[in-house]
Nucleic acid binder design. Sequence first.
DNA 1: CTGTATCCCATACGATACTG
DNA 2: CAGTATCGTATGGGATACAG
Lengths: 115, 115
Amino acid sequence: MYKVKGKEYPCCTSVTMGIIGGKWKSVILIHLIDSPLRYNELRKLIPTVTERTLSLQLKKLEEDGVISRKVYTTKPPLKVEYALTDFGKTLIPILISIAEWGDFVVENYSDKKNN
Amino acid sequence: MYKVKGKEYPCCTSVTMGIIGGKWKSVILIHLIDSPLRYNELRKLIPTVTERTLSLQLKKLEEDGVISRKVYTTKPPLKVEYALTDFGKTLIPILISIAEWGDFVVENYSDKKNN
DNA sequence: CTGTATCCCATACGATACTG
DNA sequence: CAGTATCGTATGGGATACAG
């Protein structure tokens, strides 16, 4: 058993999946690799996520220390930017592998060919 | 949008996460890298998973074509072995990266040091 | 040994309206 | 612009008993 921040995990893969798992977190992180992005920019890049969910997932990623949230204005309209932290940047190779493997699956087993 | 087997994904990372995501699938797969394993062997290696959940996750992995289920006996006591398929083996580098990053997190941010 | 059946709960996620 | 509030649903997963 592994313990990180009070939570227990049965395997070291679970630790990673706890941080980048779920339906949206890897998608958010992939988009942050190239450059920091604002909330609305993420929404446009990920049109199928709801505002609420995007907000929740960003908070969890921030809690886990993989992204940072920087506020640039105090009065509306607000400007907030999300970026990978140095710790988050250590995930980049994995994120890219995950994206490439997904691509590989889509190419070889997608509905284009098999359905 | 990406489509694989009738399901839609907003990003190619989602495709991968749909296959290896969740609480248990990466754990199961990691244990199958070295050698095929029987149901009970997996249970012993992953003591915190319930029978029902292990069974369900194995089925999903089989449906997605990353593991194979081979039955060696027709009468009880049954012998069943689970193994990575050739397709599943293409996941090995990612699984190892995921495990190593989890290890890295445990080493650097675990309760041993920070709690 | 290898699972299923049943029941239940927690959490993730979605839809929509609203706010500083 | 960047979120919250509220409500509802769907899925994942746990506990336990039982079956081929």
